[in-house]
């Protein structure tokens, strides 16, 4: 997919430029863009390291576990089928906590461990269970306290109000999680009724 998008963009740019007489500008754009990408990553780097460093301190001092305890009560609401499955629940909680803190590198292995557990409960079926759908949709909806790459990008781009977008981000994340979880709940109930 990405291969075609990327190749298509380059080919279309030159083709369009050929008709409008912009060919040199496009070549210059390629070089400028490559240069800018490196500058951007270097600009990001400091803030990314600051955040991942701080989060490592949080993890070692047990703050992530404390946060996980706070999330737990929400779980029985979202996963009614997992009442007697503590292992699955704790994997899900760990994944949600990691996502919430923006620890995406840690979140994926934890999420896959949770999927493994849900698959076992589901008898390794090729058909997704309600709990799996709910879990994956929550993961695609992204609930993050601090979207660190984005904040670093904004500050690297010279923003004078880097953190000003946080409250809007939270509002949107909450709205999308509510819609996503409600959609899963309604669609799974509709399927159950049809059977």
């Amino acid at each position: 997919m990405m291969n075609y998008v990327w190749a298509g963009m380059i080919a279309a740019s030159y083709l369009f430029a050929f008709f409008t007489g912009n060919v040199e500008a496009v070549t210059k754009g390629a070089m400028d863009g490559a240069q800018r990408a490196v500058e951007m990553v270097f600009g990001l780097c400091g803030m990314m390291c600051l955040w991942t460093g701080l989060l490592e301190v949080a993890r070692r001092s047990g703050l992530t576990d404390a946060l996980a305890k706070l999330v737990r009560p929400l779980l029985s609401l979202l996963f009614p089928d997992l009442k007697k499955e503590p292992a699955a629940k704790s994997a899900i909680v760990m994944n949600m906590t990691a996502n919430f803190l923006g620890l995406s590198n840690a979140a994926t292995p934890l999420g896959l461990a949770a999927m493994e557990e849900l698959s076992r409960i589901n008898g390794k079926s090729k058909r997704a269970s309600d709990a799996m759908c709910m879990f994956v949709v929550i993961n695609t909806a992204s609930i993050t306290l601090l979207p660190n790459t984005l904040l670093a990008l904004r500050s690297a781009a010279g923003s004078t109000d880097t953190f000003g977008i946080l409250v809007p981000v939270w509002i949107c994340s909450i709205a999308s999680v509510i819609v996503g979880t409600m959609a899963v709940a309604m669609l799974s109930r509709r399927e159950a009724r049809r059977r």
């Binding site: 990327w6 963009m9 279309a12 754009g29 390629a30």
Partner: peptide, 8 residues
């Protein structure tokens, strides 16, 4: 990607 987008 940024090179391609800037070309675009």
């Amino acid at each position: 990607l940024i090179a391609a987008i800037t070309m675009f």
